[in-house]
Each structure stands twice: as C-alpha cells, then as structure tokens.
Computed example of a mutant assay.
Amino acid sequence: MSRLRTKSWVLPVSLILALLLGLVPLPPLLQPLRPYWLALVLAYWVMETPERVGLGFAFAIGVLADLMYGSILGEQALRLVIFTFILQRFRARIRFFPMSQQALAIGGLLANDRIVDAAIHLLAGEPMLPWTYWWAPLLGMLLWLPLFVLLDAVRLGRRSRGRGR
C-alpha cells in the first residue's frame, strides 16, 4: 500500500501525456489513425483504481480536453462519461478477461465512442468525419496491451525477475 502512495504522480502525469498526445500534429494521411489516447488512459485508471477515477473525474477531464482541443464544449466530456459509465458497468467482468479479450472489449468501447462522436457531430450540424476515422478504434485496441503493461509497470514499480525462486 505504501508503494501505491509514493506513485500518486502517475495518474496526473499519464493524463497530461494523453492530453498532449491528442495535440501532437500528424500528417493528414495519419490523422484519421490517431487513437483516442485520453480514453485509453482513462480506461486503465477506471479498471485499476475505480475508487479514484469515476464519472465526475471523466467529465472534468473531458471538459479540460474540450478546452485544449477546441472542440464543441461538452463533446469530449460526454464521450468520456459514456465511455467510463459502460466500462464501470462491466469492469468486474472485463478485469478478469485475458488481455486479448480485454483489448477486444476496449476496441468495442472505442468503436462505440466513434458512434457517439458521429451522433454529436450530426446533432450539432458539424460535417461528418470521413470513413477513415473508423480505423482509430482498431489501432486503440492494438495499443491496449502495451499501454496497460507500461502504466502497470510505472504505477506498481518493476517486479524483480527472481521473485518466485
């Protein structure tokens, strides 16, 4: 428990990095493939520390993302709250899935996020995103395992190799 207290910086730093990764300029060809970093990092924290990260936290981070990305005020907040709500609802099951099935579940949540995003754009009268933007959930699904392992290693510290001997 004391080890977790000393690593309390990991949550804010990981979210700041996720916000910044959303701002990194990409060539027009790669722009549609940008994973929703904020949702991926938030998914990790909802899965691992649900007592610290919930719907209110997702809303606050979403409003901050709206301000940083210059999107419709409340768009990212709504998307992240829906994402977090569904993840919280099925967290107990998803946590015990093998990592490949967890990645599929996260991919499904990211695809659902694209549907919510398309609905928001439709209701706001904004132009619809091109079909190539539907590839991003697939890339996010593929990035789930390395992101999960990286955040777990940083949050919990490196495990010694000879522990079981």
Rank of each mutant, 00 (worst) to 15 (best):
L122V: 11
V63N: 00
A153D: 05
F85Q: 11
L138D: 02
N112C: 13
M99K: 08
W9S: 00
P28E: 07
Y69D: 11
L123R: 10
V53H: 06
R155C: 07
M47Y: 07
A39E: 05
V149T: 09
A92Y: 09
A92L: 12
R52E: 15
R158E: 01
R5V: 14
L87A: 12
F90Y: 15
M68L: 15
G157L: 00
F96C: 05
S160C: 00
L129E: 10
P50C: 07
P32I: 03
W134A: 15
P98G: 05
E75A: 14
L104R: 00
L145R: 15
R161C: 04
L142K: 10
Y133W: 14
S100A: 13
I72P: 00
I61R: 01
L11F: 11
I86T: 13
L55H: 02
L4Q: 10
I61A: 07
T132W: 05
G56F: 09
L147G: 14
E126M: 13
R158A: 03
L80K: 00
V116T: 12
G164I: 08
L23A: 11
S71I: 03
P50G: 06
F57Y: 15
G62W: 02
R79F: 03
K7R: 14
M47D: 04
I94S: 08
L156Q: 09
L67N: 06
G22D: 04
P146C: 13
L150K: 10
L80G: 03
A39K: 07
P35S: 02
Y133F: 15
W134N: 08
V10M: 06
G107T: 05
L42N: 14
L87E: 08
G162W: 06
P130C: 04
V46H: 13
V13N: 01
L156W: 06
A60E: 02
G54E: 07
M99F: 09
L138M: 12
V149W: 11
I120E: 02
A65P: 10
S8A: 06
V41T: 14
L129S: 07
L19W: 14
L78D: 00
L73S: 07
L38R: 02
V10L: 03
M47E: 06
P12H: 09
G56L: 14
L78A: 05
L138A: 15
T84E: 06
T6Y: 04
M99D: 12
L73E: 07
L104Y: 01
R52W: 09
W135S: 11
T6V: 10
E75F: 09
R89N: 07
L15I: 09
E75C: 01
L4K: 06
V154D: 04
Y44K: 12
L38A: 06
I82C: 14
R95G: 07
L21H: 05
Q101W: 00
L78W: 04
M128A: 14
I94F: 13
L33I: 00
W134T: 14
L73I: 13
L23T: 13
A92D: 14
L123S: 13
A18W: 10
L156T: 08
L11H: 02
L21V: 08
G140Q: 07
P127D: 01
L80V: 01
L150W: 13
N112M: 14
R52T: 08
P27V: 01
M1K: 01
N112R: 05
